[in-house]
Design a protein around this nucleic acid. Structure first.
Length: 219
DNA sequence: CTCCTGGATA
DNA sequence: TATCCCGGAG
């Protein structure tokens, strides 16, 4: 299975090249982006982060003490801005109160205890937690998302209604825990999902995984 | 399951 | 106008 998963990886990488994920200047910016991108296109997140930066609010302590209305106004492009303002503040206050505002101290924890702690913070579910763990804390955990499930179920490798944890275990059982590899693998999956493997009208003709995909053959 | 509730694209 | 986008809480 390792060979097959790496064959898929190689085909994607040759097609798209390096994706340079996560697009952020600092680990804290990764966290902010991970929360803001929930169910929203990344281009909307870029505008919101720009707004926060200009307002001097792309900062853990500043967000912890900010007014929710002001936060919401700045992140408006990311939709669900009232909920996300609460989520950003919940994370920042957690780190401020328990780690003296230091992300490094939070990230010093071991992978799985840290994951459980992140999941306990309001607004952080499995995908957001794993994105923070891999792309900000640089822990070797495989990030799974809707694209991953759709692509690998269409490839015929997993069940269409597989749960998040099961799909994550599928990858981590077969691919050695390497931060750089997990980083690039998920980024490549996103590129396939974003450009070709759409839910309704997939563009199978140009997909680098077409030769391996039973779904593409049927389209 | 519903709610949350912007912006680019075609 | 319809659709989709790097989900999570209640």
């Amino acid at each position: 299975m390792y060979q097959k998963l790496m064959d898929i990886y190689d085909r994607m990488y040759k097609h798209f090249g390096p994706r340079h994920w996560w697009p952020a200047d600092t680990p804290f910016e990764v966290v902010v982006g991970a929360i803001l991108t929930q169910s929203v296109a990344w281009r909307n997140v870029e505008q919101a982060i720009k707004n926060l930066k200009q307002a001097g609010l792309l900062d853990l302590v500043a967000i912890a003490h900010a007014e929710l209305d002001e936060l919401a106004r700045l992140i408006r492009p990311t939709r669900y801005y009232n909920m996300k303002a609460r989520k950003l503040q919940a994370f920042c206050r957690h780190v401020l109160e328990n780690y003296d505002g230091s992300l490094e101290r939070l990230f010093a924890k071991d992978l799985w205890p840290l994951r459980e702690e992140l999941l306990g913070i309001y607004g952080i579910g499995e995908e957001t937690a794993d994105s923070i763990l891999l792309y900000a804390a640089e822990k070797p955990i495989f990030v799974v998302d809707a694209y991953t499930k759709r692509i690998f179920s269409r490839l015929g490798m997993v069940d269409a209604d597989i749960k998040y944890g099961q799909l994550q275990r599928f990858f981590m059982d077969h691919i050695p825990p390497d931060v750089m590899l997990y980083n690039e693998y998920h980024a490549q999956i996103d590129a396939v999902g974003n450009n070709y493997c759409a839910a309704k009208k997939p563009s199978c003709g140009e997909c680098p995984l077409r030769p391996l995909c039973g779904f593409a053959s049927a389209v």
